[in-house]
C-alpha cells in the first residue's frame, strides 16, 4: 500500500510554476460531477506578472533566428510525444471520452505542432515579397512579429484547442499569455511542464488557469498586449472596445489550421534600400 502523490496544478509564469498570488484555487469536476482537481485561480496581478514576463521575453524570442525557433518548436513536439499517456489520462478524466478518442486528439495535437514548427523558417519567404517599383531601390516587404499576444483558449478541446491557438502565435516570433480552458485546464498545465523542458526561453509562453470572465477584461485592456486570440470566448463585443484603446489586433478563429493564423499576429514591414552604390 502506497500513498498517492497528488499533483498541485499551478500557473506557469516566466518559466516558473507559482501558485496564484491571491492564494486562490477552484474546483473542477468531470461530467458526472465528481471532483478532479483544484487548479490555481489566477488573479489580475498574476496576469500582470505574466504580461511583464512575456514582454521581457519578446526581444530574445523574436530576435532568434527562424530556424532556431523551428528547432525549439520541434523539440516541444518531441516532449509532447513523451507525455502522451499523461495527456490521454487527463483528457479522459475531464471530458469522459474513451481513451482511444483521447489518444487520437493527442496525436492530432502533436501533428499540428510539428506542422507549425515547419512553418517557422518558411513564413517569411512565402508571405514576404520583393516589390517591383519604379526607382533605383530594392523594396522588400517582410512579416514581423507583433509583440505580446493574449490568448483565451477554446473551452472544449482542451489540448488540441491550445495547440491550435498557441503554436502559430509563437511560431511567428510573438510571446504569449494564455488563459486556459476554465473547465478543462489540466492539459494546459501539463503543456506548461512540456514547455518548461524544451529549451523554450522563459516567458515566451505563460499559462494561467482561472475564471475567464474575471481575467479577460484585464487582458483586453492591458496596454502592453498587442493582439488577442479570443477563440475561447463567446461574446467579445466589450473586449473589442477596451482592446481598441491601443489598437490591438483581435481575432477569433474557427477550428482552422492554416498559415493565415501565423500571419494574423504578424505585421508587414516594408524596407526601401538603394541599389547601385
Amino acid at each position: 500500500m502506497r500513498l498517492d502523490v497528488k499533483k498541485t496544478y499551478k500557473l506557469f509564469i516566466g518559466g516558473a510554476f507559482p501558485r496564484s498570488e491571491s492564494g486562490r484555487s477552484y474546483e473542477i469536476k468531470n461530467k458526472r460531477g465528481q471532483f478532479i482537481a483544484n487548479p490555481a485561480q489566477a488573479s489580475r496581478k498574476d496576469l500582470r506578472d505574466a504580461v511583464l514576463a512575456a514582454k521581457n521575453a519578446h526581444p530574445g524570442w523574436s530576435g532568434a533566428t527562424a530556424f532556431n525557433r523551428g528547432q525549439i518548436l520541434y523539440r516541444i513536439a518531441e516532449m509532447l510525444e513523451g507525455r502522451t499517456s499523461q495527456f490521454v489520462d487527463e483528457i479522459v478524466a475531464t471530458t469522459g471520452v474513451t481513451s482511444s478518442v483521447a489518444k487520437q486528439e493527442v496525436s492530432a495535437a502533436i501533428d499540428r505542432w510539428v506542422w507549425y514548427a515547419g512553418w517557422c523558417d518558411k513564413i517569411t519567404s512565402v508571405s514576404g515579397n520583393n516589390n517591383p517599383i519604379a526607382g533605383p531601390y530594392y523594396n522588400f516587404t517582410i512579416p514581423e512579429s507583433l509583440g505580446v499576444i493574449g490568448i483565451v483558449a477554446e473551452e472544449k478541446d482542451s489540448l488540441i484547442g491550445l495547440v491550435r491557438s498557441l503554436a502559430p502565435i509563437i511560431a511567428g516570433g510573438n510571446t504569449s499569455v494564455l488563459i486556459a480552458s476554465q473547465s478543462r485546464p489540466l492539459a494546459a498545465v501539463t503543456l506548461a511542464e512540456v514547455l518548461a523542458t524544451s529549451d523554450l526561453p522563459a516567458g515566451v509562453v505563460n499559462i494561467l488557469t482561472g475564471i475567464k470572465t474575471e481575467l479577460a477584461p484585464w487582458l483586453a485592456s492591458h496596454m502592453e498586449i498587442d493582439g488577442l486570440d479570443l477563440s475561447g470566448i463567446d461574446s467579445i463585443a466589450e473586449l473589442r472596445v477596451s482592446g481598441a484603446e491601443n489598437l490591438k489586433r483581435i481575432h477569433t478563429f474557427e477550428k482552422d489550421v492554416s498559415p493565415e493564423r501565423i500571419l494574423a499576429f504578424m505585421e508587414y514591414k516594408t524596407i526601401w534600400h538603394p541599389v547601385g552604390i
Partner: peptide, 9 residues
C-alpha cells in the same frame, strides 16, 4: 485609468 499601462507610454 483603471487598466494596466505599457512601457511604451
Amino acid at each position: 485609468s483603471g487598466h494596466y499601462s505599457s512601457a511604451n507610454y
